[in-house]
Design a protein around this nucleic acid. Structure first.
Lengths: 227, 227, 227, 227
DNA sequence: TATGAATGAGGCTTCATTCAT
DNA sequence: AATGAATGAAGCCTCATTCAT
């Protein structure tokens, strides 16, 4: 009996270790990708950074691309979580909360956001890991879906422009996407005041598509005080 | 005499042919890049598509990266031209013309716009062709500069929010950038009505950052009729 | 316990195999270089001759040039060993022993000696592997140094001409160098009696720079009988 | 008549120009080879330095290797000339004059001497221009031949060791060869006093192989005064 | 006749993935 | 189960030589 249970314990223990190592691989990869150019990161370097052998990486991931898609999915799931919370708050009356949550989570760590965009480019070009890429798209589509109800209501309420509901979400996505690239485009890098700029853009994001709504900090703070 | 002139003619003729071939290389590269994944396009394939030998490519470009930066610069110069025209029209009273020109030229061939973004990423990572990358940045900065006067005037006139003038340009850049990615992100690709969506976003771009201005087509035409 | 030791054994075994393969690469390279023209030997051919994959070569050597410098260093270390022994015998009274050892070790396998000279030329032109080239030079300088004491004593004893001590070593080096080229210069190749010629030159080498010393085999044997 | 002669003049003029250009190509090549690494000198660079088109080079030389062998032959012919003069003086009683001339002409421009050695290595490996390489060898063999009479006489006169006559010439060749490499071997480069060293070696070269002859400047001057 | 653009074989090197221990 | 040595396809670039003008 005890033997059995201890053996089960050992198995569970092993699984935990296995998962922990998997996370270490992901973390190592992200670290390296953020430090240096994507093209220069090899599986070997990831293994070294993770403190394991190269072969072991392939016990966890079938191909290098599986590491990439995993990083992207992890990140997208985080975004989804934030957005869901925002939608919750929006349902409670704070009409801009969803957009705000979305922007904040994407601009919280813009470097990482940008990284996942770039990884996704590489991945899609490779034609690999199609299944997981589909999963990623499903995730995004479900986000869109989750917003549709809210957006429709806001359109009906005259808050948002009367266009197909997903236009609003996609415009948000586009602005956020561009804002992130703005942060890292070498051309603009020397401009200070990134924080103020990102706030400015976030405000645009929160109010864009609004009908009869002023684009100003006042309008934003008004909303806040109302809620 | 005639001999001289005919010899000079021949030389000129040769130069023209040489430049034409250079353009053929560029065109071949762009074609291939648009058809397939950037990573899969080799110098050899470009040469074959251009109908010349691999070695000939290197008579025109010192390295593969020089082809990339050339594509990018050619494109950015086009944008600059459009923007300059828009600024001209804006000076003549059409306050939204600059932003509109900018968006239209970038969204006219979004696939190409996206391509140049991706090429730029690769290039910057490579650390190569630094000089030409600087030239690219100069071009963008000069665009920003050209807009500063116009933007400042619009701020003083109470049309635009009173933030540092370049915020407006950068926000435009970001939205355009994101809109382009929106067009080609596989997640959203199956959604029809791209044209309407792009119009919607363009309108946002034209009016975003405006002070006390409605976000609607009416508001847009109002402005036009006022000016 | 046994487990541990056997695992350690296995690791040691692996290392031995690894080093053995490294030697096989070197041997294959030397074989090929001696068989054919240096310029015609590619990394690929070396790998084939060594019976391994091209990529494997790069597990052992960072670049092709690292193979070359390794061959040269291995050879120079051999020379150094012989010379050191000769210096030992010279200290024991046989005044010509050092020079003799030096000549003999360099003329023992003249083809290999010549090969290393040529490899060194290529290497220095390439400007690569600077560190290891420095090591090579250090090795030679240390040889020179080791001889300085002996030479100085022989000068004081009136055996050698009173010129800066290193003149004697360098003259030896030059003659040995030239003798090796003599062996392989196509112009002289058809002349028989290479052995006798090399003996003649070795004798010159052993006695050159001597003061009041006959250049003849007798003089050489006299010295020998004295010691 | 006049027409004919002027046409002949023109032809002669053209030939002169043609030969002058050929020399310019040779000179340009030598300049470049001496300035930089042999491997890095391309036909294109030679043409540019010579101030002509790349294609024109091929009007003068069938292949790149023909340029190399031409440089070598030109140099070897110079050596031959000096040696012949030396032999003349030796016949007039100055027994060391031949060796001295030989050493002096080879050490006069050691960099060029070394260059021709290296070019010869490349050439022979290439298996190209066999005919001209044979010519080069003939030249050297004829030098040896020219010396045979002199050397034989010196052996009979008891001045030189009684070994096959060509041993003496070849020993000279070897020492000169080695001396030249000594000048340019990076290991020894920092040692000053190159002039004194070369004089020391030249003296060895002049007296080596002598029978019952002291190795010293005195011995040398003795011989001179005796003759 | 002089030119130089065009050519393409062939070199070195990288790295994702496999597999024997 | 973990390892890391081995692999080889594939990419970029060089340069001697040709040939149409």
């Amino acid at each position: 009996m005890q033997n059995n249970s201890s053996s089960a314990d050992r198995i569970r223990e092993k699984k935990k270790l296995f998962l922990a190592r998997e996370q270490r691989i992901i973390d190592a990869a992200v670290e390296l990708f953020l430090e240096s150019s994507i093209d220069r990161i090899t599986v070997s370097k990831i293994a070294i950074r993770a403190g394991i052998g190269k072969g072991t990486v392939y016990k966890h991931f079938l191909t290098k691309n599986e590491i990439l898609i995993r990083i992207i999915l992890d990140y997208e799931r985080n975004i989804t979580k934030s957005l869901t919370e925002g939608i919750g708050r929006a349902g409670a009356g704070d009409s801009g909360a969803a957009a705000k949550s979305y922007f904040q989570s994407r601009l919280e760590n813009p470097k990482l956001d940008r990284l996942t965009q770039q990884l996704e480019d590489r991945l899609i070009e490779s034609g690999d890991v199609i299944e997981q890429v589909k999963e990623l798209h499903q995730l995004r589509l479900s986000n869109e879906d989750a917003l549709k109800g809210l957006t429709s209501k806001l359109i009906e309420g005259g808050v948002l422009e009367d266009v197909p509901p997903h236009f609003h979400y996609l415009a948000c996505w586009a602005l956020a996407q561009g804002a992130v690239e703005l942060c890292f485009n070498k051309t603009w890098n020397n401009k200070m005041d990134n924080v103020a700029l990102m706030e400015f853009i976030t405000n645009i994001g929160v109010t864009m598509g609004n009908k009869g709504q002023y684009h100003s900090d006042e309008s934003l703070s008004n909303k806040k005080s109302k809620s």
